[in-house]
Amino acid sequence: MIRSELIQKLADENSDMKPEEVEKIVDIFFNQITQRLAEGGRVELRGFGAFSTRERAPRKGRNPRTGESVDVPAKRVPYFKAGKEMHARLNNG
């Protein structure tokens, strides 16, 4: 399923709403999640899963083309953990 298919499904079951409005809601939904992670917070969606961020230590990397050593700085990366209910549903539980 891709973003446009999700919007189509929502638009189909909300025929009273304009498709643009449905699209705006989907944008708000995903944008708010990213926004909260960028602010350093976490997102908990019971039954679905939780988004958070994790610290990555600085490390020495290598330019794969030249073999040159480069410093990769410390950074924060997004992390998702599926909820128990989600795991159960994926495993016919």
Binding site: M1, R3, E13
Partner: peptide
């Protein structure tokens, strides 16, 4: 509904790709 449709798709074995998100 957004969460429900994504969960349904994954339950049916589909990956869910949201451009700009992940």
């Amino acid at each position: 509904s957004i969460l429900g449709h994504m969960t349904d798709a994954m339950e049916n074995g589909e990956n869910v790709k949201i451009s700009g998100f992940g």
